[in-house]
Design a protein around this nucleic acid. Sequence first.
DNA 1: ATGAAAGCGCTAACAG
DNA 2: CTGTTAGCGCTTTCAT
Lengths: 355, 355
Amino acid sequence: MSTHGPDDAAAAPREKKTRRGAGGITLRDVAKLAGVAPITASRALNTPSAVSPEVLQRVREAVERTGYVPNMLAGGLASNKSRLVAAVVPTIAGPVFLETVQALTEALAERGYQLMLGQSGYRDSREDALLETIIGRRPDGVVLTGIMRSPEGRRRLLASGIPVVETWDLTPTPIDMLVGFSHEKIGAEVAAYLHRRGCRRVATISGDDERALRRHRAFSDAAVKLGMALRGENKVPSVVVPAPTTLGSGRRGVADLLAGHPDIDAVFCSSDLLALGVLTEAQARGIRIPEQLAVVGLGDLSFAADLHPALTTVRIDGTTIGRTAAQFIIDRAEGRPVASPIHDVGFTIVERGSA
Amino acid sequence: MSTHGPDDAAAAPREKKTRRGAGGITLRDVAKLAGVAPITASRALNTPSAVSPEVLQRVREAVERTGYVPNMLAGGLASNKSRLVAAVVPTIAGPVFLETVQALTEALAERGYQLMLGQSGYRDSREDALLETIIGRRPDGVVLTGIMRSPEGRRRLLASGIPVVETWDLTPTPIDMLVGFSHEKIGAEVAAYLHRRGCRRVATISGDDERALRRHRAFSDAAVKLGMALRGENKVPSVVVPAPTTLGSGRRGVADLLAGHPDIDAVFCSSDLLALGVLTEAQARGIRIPEQLAVVGLGDLSFAADLHPALTTVRIDGTTIGRTAAQFIIDRAEGRPVASPIHDVGFTIVERGSA
DNA sequence: ATGAAAGCGCTAACAG
DNA sequence: CTGTTAGCGCTTTCAT
């Protein structure tokens, strides 16, 4: 406004340029109603102990009367804390990560944090795009299922400064924090377990995701060392099926296995669903479990214990993973240092009827 | 600043009070680097067609060089569009809603929206608290699995003005939009189906959630009308198990049922997992399916078709529900009217070996 | 096609 | 314990 127009010198100061005014109740309205400054109303809601009981009372009444709901977008922008945590899973369709996601959601909700869910697919391509939209929300933390392999992704995440928890795997060089277990150790221990149970011709059915393949490899190597492979072979028979794994691929997998190697006496499946498929196919063919064929699954899903025969499987404590990840993120978000940011939750071989 | 201090009249204007400065790259930095005003950089990113190709180029380079990631909290606050959609499920642990959540996540991601996940539990109590935190995020839409029963919840949602899609159910009076199917119709049609197959002594195993119980009731009523209940009885035998349902509760459920009513010839289960439990128990007891006992599940989960015998079940197209809900929300968010905001996706009885 | 100003709703910083 | 002021980083409005 470089020149004054001809209008009266005492003209009312040009009225406030009001914008889209979402129309909603704001903290200002509440404060006005309670007869205090907005910041005081803010304190009454966020740090009740910092205001007088009388003011607290008045503000609460005003909130009640107006039905005010704080705008956390605005709050997050101002305070640089979004109270949002992003989780990235390959797919939510496979039941494997559910327990982790559920525990994560609950543990976060208890502390006033919300979960944003992203699916990366089992191929890496979408992960980078997903990362961009996640970082754009300025979450207080990111939980990854599996470790981030793409160097580009690691860089972005690191650069963003957002606390990151990688899960469901172990690496000496996590981006930031880690809650997981060793897939290699699982493979080796299952092989040893089957060996102790007297199995000598073992095989695997494995999803084609990277972690399952690593379990398979470790299993195969250990089995060879224990003399459970065909003489002269340096690996055990195996079928790879596309992730996410299903009962159907388990049935077909064991059928393929049996066609090529009728003499196998044990199968290590990369998921309980696959194992259920093996049990199903065995039942259909009249193969006795575990006498003719021992079966080991992975996941200890809710149905494993109640199957007939009950499924021997590798239990991963997804709940602990989820809760620990939540704790790590919240500690960081609230400025508490995380003592030991690498946590191995281990695993358990749950011995049941099928092996 | 009511009085001027004694400082020099020509004093430098007291330097900007810099705040927590998250330190990140902002649109300003990008704009400066590109030699344009922030708003121009904003336009280059959001409406590329509104700036000259030359400017577009320079801005893109600046983004590239700086690794700038837009702050969507700030954008959302300014534009009143968060590009966030909230989904509320009873629990993510039951595999029933997974397909819907997955489709929803994907359909939203394709259009640049993110999903926030909330678990309400099967009891209503947590739903209200959840609603508050959801509304606080000012999402562009809310997807509810099941219809909102609490009047308080309906009021809040309505008052918030946020587009709402209720799913997995049908009601003539939705809060806003609806994508679902009739649980009553399912109950009635399954009863008719079993009657056609010659069953005359039917029973149910049902989760204790509200929708499952409605299916049970409709099934029972229809069965009575068709003469499939004991003479003089106005309902069919039934066992209610806690939600979420499991294979184990299916096994125990059918055991209970058989103990009280050894003559039943068909069981309608409120989930495929329950049905799998019935199949398992039957196998353990040597009961022939479907000759001695017909079994019908619900959900058509991935394993249903590959079971032995294959499971006859009610298929709900969760993917269509999810995609349609996403479409509804996005249409609303982008100002397009939703032609018919109530969509019945129906269901299919998938006839397989178990009934 | 580009820019200046204003402000979305909230909270950090600094007084009183 | 309460208030004033100045932004958080972006986009709308209005002008050019």
